[in-house]
């Protein structure tokens, strides 16, 4: 190797000070920045990473959520509910339509309405039969024609 020391003609004090400026230590932040920006991964500080490493690296058992259902289960359940509601609807319809009079009689309001309608019916005396006229007479009807023959 060629000796070029004769070129280093700076004052000895300057050379000494220059040589003393070496030995800098790169800060740990340099690797953090490099791994984050260039390697695409960020590492936690050493102490923190050591604390969470076991839980991160050990395979955890699959977690079963209490209300986790599959799509087929949801569809089947919905169909069953719809069918049940439909059956209830038709059953109640059939029960109601098969006993309409009984249902109405049990209502006191309706009973009064029907009674009023009955007493409000006017019939011509001539349209009644003999038995009818006799019953109407017993109930106090007036103006009934006399039976002939």
């Amino acid at each position: 190797m060629t000796d070029f020391h004769e070129l280093d003609n700076l004052p000895p004090g300057v050379l000494e000070e220059l040589r003393s400026l070496g030995g800098e230590v790169a800060p740990p932040e340099l690797w953090d920045r490099l791994s984050l920006n260039a390697l695409g991964q960020a590492e936690a500080p050493g102490e923190l990473w050591e604390r969470v490493r076991p839980s991160v690296e050990s395979p955890a058992p699959p977690i079963r959520r209490p209300f986790a259902f599959s799509a087929s289960q949801i569809i089947a359940s919905a169909a069953a509910v719809i069918l049940f509601v439909g059956v209830l609807f038709f059953a109640s319809e059939r029960t109601t339509s098969s006993q309409p009079l009984t249902a109405d009689v049990h209502s006191s309001d309706l009973r009064e309405v029907y009674r009023a309608r009955v007493f409000a019916v006017e019939v011509a005396p001539e349209s009644l039969s003999g038995v009818g006229r006799h019953l109407a007479g017993l109930m106090g009807a007036s103006g009934l024609p006399e039976e002939t023959g």
């Binding site: 070496g22 030995g23 800098e24 790169a26 490099l34």
Partner: peptide, 15 residues
């Protein structure tokens, strides 16, 4: 490699 050269690179850049 980074560990091997980081201080030299940083020193040059710092100065």
């Amino acid at each position: 490699l980074f560990v091997l050269f980081q201080d030299r690179v940083f020193t040059v850049c710092f100065r």
